[in-house]
Design a protein around this nucleic acid. Sequence first.
DNA 1: GCGACAG
DNA 2: ATCTTGTCGC
Length: 218
Amino acid sequence: MTWSDFPNFLNEAREQQQRLSDQVIREDCFKEIGIVAGVDVGFEEQGKITRAAAVTLSLNDLKVIEEVVIRQPTQLPYMPGFLSFRECPAILIALARLNKTPDLIFCDGHGIAHPRRFGNACHVGVETNIPSIGVGKSRLIGKHDPVPDTVGSWVPLIDKNETIGVVLRTKVGVRPIFISIGHKISLQTAIKYTTACVIRYRLPEPTRLADKLASNRK
DNA sequence: GCGACAG
DNA sequence: ATCTTGTCGC
C-alpha cells in the first residue's frame, strides 16, 4: 500500500466501522461467565513490531489460567478513531492461541464510546463473537460530570445525547477509567463484571495483566 | 478555521 | 504506545 492509497483505506475503514456497528449487540447475550480474558497490545523496535497479549483468568478467584504473547510486523500507524485496524488483527491471533476460549473479553481502549460506535472492543467482540467490554484509560469522545471520589461510583459518558459508556472510579485518588459496551453485553452488566475484576489497582485484573504482558514490564 | 484526538 | 531515573508517598 502506498501513500496515495491511504485516503481510500481511511474511507473504507470508516465505512466498515459504520456497517459493522450495526452488528454490535448491546444487551446481555451469554449464559454463564466462567473464564474472563484480558487483551492488550504493546510495541517493540521503535514501533516496527506489534506485540499482542492475551491472558485468561477464572472469574471466581481471578487466578491466571493461561498467557499468550505473539509478535507481528506493525501494519498501520496509530490514528485516533482507527485504533482497532492497527491492534485487532494481532489480538485475534493471540486469542486464537488460547487453549480455552474465554466467556468474556476485557479489551484495552473503548467499545461503542467511539465516533462511529465501533471502537476496538467492538471489533474484537464482533470478530470473535464473544462478549466484550471496552476499558479505556482516557477519553476519546463524550462529555461527563466529575466522578465522585468514592470507589465504585460512576457517571455516564454522553455523546450527542446518547449514553455511550460510564466513567468509573475504581480507586480513590487516581484517574477513573472509561467503561463501554464492546459486544453482547449491556452497560450495567459491563460495570458489574468490571467491578468484580478490580482488586487493588486502577485497572481490572484482565486488562492490567494483559497490559503488563504486552509492554514487557513486570 | 480552530482544537481534540483510545493506544 | 514509546523514549527514560529518580523519587515522592503509603
